[in-house]
Design a protein around this nucleic acid. Structure first.
Lengths: 338, 338
DNA sequence: CTGAAAGCGCTTACAG
DNA sequence: CTGAAAGCGCTTACAG
């Protein structure tokens, strides 16, 4: 059993009030008492119970985070920067890894409520009615990070997915490509599904390129689906000469598929990804990607959440961060041939 | 402000004791009262405070986890399976991402104590005296996952790193290689540093192969260091024909370095990694690796911890899991030449 | 500057 | 079957 404040008080020969005061760094404690107390704390290895403290202070310093998939390098990088920001603001993270498991998410949202977390960060946008309504009832600040669900009532920290996708596609067009394949995300996702798809389509039509539905496929953002969808695209009578995949993971899957068919990236097919995950630098050729400011996204997310928590502010406007095209080795002009 | 049990009691016209009883599923509550209470709970959106509950039950259902690097696919995969096991046992995870920051670790250990976590999982072995002594004083069950620090007093969930490294090296020897390079880890780490190094050396000497120190380098387990160390190895007068890197990340770095020098894996140089991370399947050629049972490791870690928590058992014996050589495409017999 | 007492939101004997 | 009261380990007015 851990020692309690009473034990410290007895050992130091003072009241618990006094112990509490030195614990909380209040002035108005005589030096000799203070040192007696500190000595007792040291000897006992005492650490005040945050549980008891939270109860009286009505402040838990806890933040709940819901991650769609911890093993994804995109999410784990955001989480890492969230953790850093939390830690330096004396907040602790309660993390929940839902793996497309809505029930688990519902359960965790309740757990968060029971734990009286001060804020919640959610990193996916497959929000159904149950979840939406529970979030509303919760009455706890919520920030969506990297996604924006339909619901307008919460703050999202995102990039302009439409514009980013538009520019990624435009980049391929500028390289001379006309048959440009697309490996999209889940169309139920507003930001990473619909918006990126629209960006792709509009870039094509704005440049008088016909949209060929055969060149359009949808995956689930993961490597394997990029591989599978690429395989599909390669089986077209006229396969695309460039492909835009809306996640780096899918782009890498597509690259692997191309290589496994003895074709070359970028000589035969150019590939551009999206996100700016660590993978971009790991694969060969290095992956050109439309990057999100992942680190910054975590930081800004925490900052916005802390602001809502401490100022008891209403949900603020969305914050749109800058995306950036990072050119590496996976794209080439169309006319280039070995 | 969240509603409290008193609010529910008033609304239902019963005592808080009765509300508490239906909350905790006790029998001996008349059905009509029970339904009144449930109705009030529903209407108020009430969820009992885990904080208050923890205080009286002296049970927080919290587990603290210290991860060396969240962005590493090895650790995030373990964490993911730990989270799953925790969640299904109604435990919540408080996660701390220390990035080689000993001060942060010390701070978090104290936070864990203050939060009265019921158990702690630590996934790195750079334990200094301060940390060691604090862990001892904590008097909270601790499990080391995937590592074994010198200190024998805590349970570790590990593989037999020596044997695994021995076998990885033996595999290269059996392929006919004699100049076998080694990219090791931090020699202050017992398991992943020293033991893997010994395995490598002994496999060589047991097979009458001279140990060439020029072929031995040490990195920090990350991709970049694999790249850098490989570059070093390639500058030897007689570069190795095969390299064993003690992490998949370093192995991938080494592969990239080799390719960037216009050499081929495995035609010019064979590479074998260690860990069994997701990267093995992502890179081309796919990486042959001596794999740890990462998923299982997480599961077994939680199981062992829960056992110590509930049975108040003393730290148990280490648990040694099975490693497994998974042959993919990055190694080839020595005599093979294009 | 110091301490006794009330209270945070629950659970759990205890009494009825 | 139900409720009043004590207590979990703290903090915070309040009084001195």
């Amino acid at each position: 059993m851990q020692p309690k404040i009473k034990d410290v008080a007895q050992r130091a020969g003072v009241s618990v009030t006094t112990v509490s005061r030195v614990l909380n760094g209040e002035k108005y404690v005589k030096d000799d008492l203070k040192s007696k107390v500190n000595k007792a704390i040291e000897e006992l290895g005492y650490a005040p119970s945050q549980i008891a403290r939270s109860l009286v202070r009505k402040k838990t310093n806890l933040i709940g985070v819901i991650v769609p998939d911890l093993t994804s390098s995109f999410y784990s990088t955001i989480l890492s920067s969230i953790e850093e920001a939390a830690s330096s603001n004396d907040y602790n993270l309660l993390v929940c890894n839902i793996i497309e498991d809505i029930d688990k998410e519902l359960k965790y949202l309740t757990v968060f409520q029971e734990m009286r977390v001060e804020g919640i960060i959610i990193m996916h946008e497959k929000i159904n009615e149950d979840i939406r309504s529970i979030i509303h009832k919760l009455n706890i600040p919520v920030i969506f990070s990297s996604v924006k669900p339909m619901d307008q009532e919460f703050t999202s920290i995102i990039i302009d997915d439409y514009k980013a996708a538009y520019e990624a596609t435009k980049y391929l067009i500028d390289l001379g490509h006309e048959e440009i394949g697309f490996i999209g995300g889940d169309m139920r996702d507003i930001t990473s599904g619909q918006n990126r798809y629209s960006g792709y389509r509009n870039a094509l039509s704005d440049n008088k390129i016909k949209i060929v539905y055969e060149n359009i496929r949808f995956g689930d953002y993961k490597v394997q689906s990029g591989y599978d969808q690429m395989k599909d695209l390669l089986s077209n009578k006229q396969p695309p000469t460039a492909v835009f995949a809306v996640s780096d993971d899918m782009a890498v899957g597509a690259m692997n598929c191309i290589r496994d068919q003895n074709l070359s990236v970028p000589d035969d097919i150019s590939i551009i990804g999206f996100d700016g995950s660590q993978l971009t630098e790991l694969v060969r050729p290095k992956l050109t990607s439309m990057e999100q400011p992942i680190q910054e996204m975590g930081k800004v997310t925490m900052a916005a959440l802390l602001k809502q928590i401490s100022h008891k502010e209403a949900p603020s406007e969305d914050i749109i961060l800058e995306h950036k095209l990072v050119v590496r080795e996976s794209c080439r002009t169309r006319n280039h041939k070995k």
